[in-house]
Design a binder for these strands. Structure first.
Length: 324
DNA sequence: CGCTGTCAAGACGAA
DNA sequence: TTCGTCTTGACAGCG
């Protein structure tokens, strides 16, 4: 058996790097309060530039800590898809910064991706919502291509709402999928959610439409048909066969029994190790996205715990093998 | 400086 | 049908 390489990543922002927010914003309300529209757009553009530049600072911080897996904030360009700013070329002011960002990620072999906000709902019965969802996905597509990063399998989505009937709504995802432009389809991965669509539903859609399945262990514990997920692990792996990327997972711990679905500050290392042992050897590499309130600090704390465990062999500060 | 309220989006359940 | 809640980080404004 070949041991699996586990690589750790984190989400969007750092609690260590000062003044490095990649999601500074300007609300539509603020925007519309400007007397001078040109000045308002200028302000938007400088916020966007600062956001993208801060992403590069974050990647440099990641490099210094051996972190090669990172989720970019979806809020890099405020109001990019807002109806009132139709016609605004929101890429132009950040094009150079996007190129620098993508170039750095490429030179340092970093995996970067997105998790668009839950307002992207592909199984919606409402045409307007589907339309704005496409617009938002196209925004992500433009960000990626302007970074010169291949858009393939870079955006994690959920199946969507339950509406009047879960079964009908799952089928509506399949129907609506055929309206999604092919270049957008290629960007997408699907993740099990914590309220409606569990891993079996996700696998149904993924196998039918040839989409990689991102398994979220925390969501699974909150929402499942059958608690034992390991039986489905091979199916999950198989959805990644056609992907250029390693299998991707989401790891987080519940905040409390009462607030089970909310993310805790950090990740429980025992739970994580137990998971790692169960899947060790099943595939060459698994990229584990740490979703915790303390962001990169949660990753550092997890690594500290891993290092003190004799079964763990660290490769660097953010990846490891389990000893056979 | 720290706290509270506001902002934005779509789903959804209560009234 | 309308309204409050969920969720998240940013940030205006208050004391």
């Amino acid at each position: 058996m070949t041991n699996t390489l586990f690589r750790l990543g984190y989400v969007a922002m750092s609690v260590h790097l000062k003044n490095s927010s990649p999601s500074q914003t300007m609300t539509y309300k603020r925007y519309s309060q400007f007397d001078d529209e040109e000045a308002a757009v200028h302000k938007l553009e400088s916020v966007a530039q600062s956001n993208v530049q801060n992403c590069l600072r974050l990647l440099k911080h990641n490099k210094a800590n051996d972190i090669h897996f990172f989720r970019l904030s979806s809020r890099l360009v405020p109001l990019a898809t807002h109806e009132a700013l139709k016609g605004w070329d929101y890429i132009k002011p950040v094009k150079k910064d996007l190129e620098d960002l993508g170039d750095f990620a490429d030179r340092n072999q970093m995996r970067i991706d997105f998790h668009p906000d839950h307002f992207v709902v592909l199984n919606t019965p409402r045409k307007e919502v589907l339309k704005t969802s496409f617009l938002t996905l196209d925004y992500h597509y433009k960000l990626l291509t302007n970074m010169n990063v291949s858009p393939r399998h870079r955006c994690v989505l959920h199946l969507g709402g339950k509406y009047e009937s879960k079964e009908d709504s799952l089928e509506r995802f399949i129907t609506n999928w055929s309206y999604v432009p092919e270049r957008i389809q290629e960007m997408i991965m699907l993740e099990n959610d914590d309220k409606t669509y569990h891993i079996h539903d996700v696998l149904y859609a993924c196998e039918k439409l040839n989409i990689p399945a991102v398994f979220d262990l925390h969501h699974h514990l909150a929402n499942h048909e059958q608690e034992n997920w390991i039986k489905e692990w091979d199916r999950i792996l198989n959805t990644w066969n056609a992907s250029p990327h390693a299998v991707k997972m989401h790891i987080s711990s519940p905040k409390s029994k009462k607030q089970f679905r909310a993310h805790a500050d950090t990740v429980d290392s025992d739970m994580f190790l137990q998971f790692a042992k169960e899947v060790n050897g099943s595939t060459g590499q698994i990229d584990c996205m740490i979703e915790a309130k303390k962001k990169d600090e949660a990753l550092f704390q997890l690594v500290k715990d891993l290092k003190s465990n004799p079964e763990v062999e660290m490769v660097d500060e953010a990846s490891f093998y389990l000893k056979a």
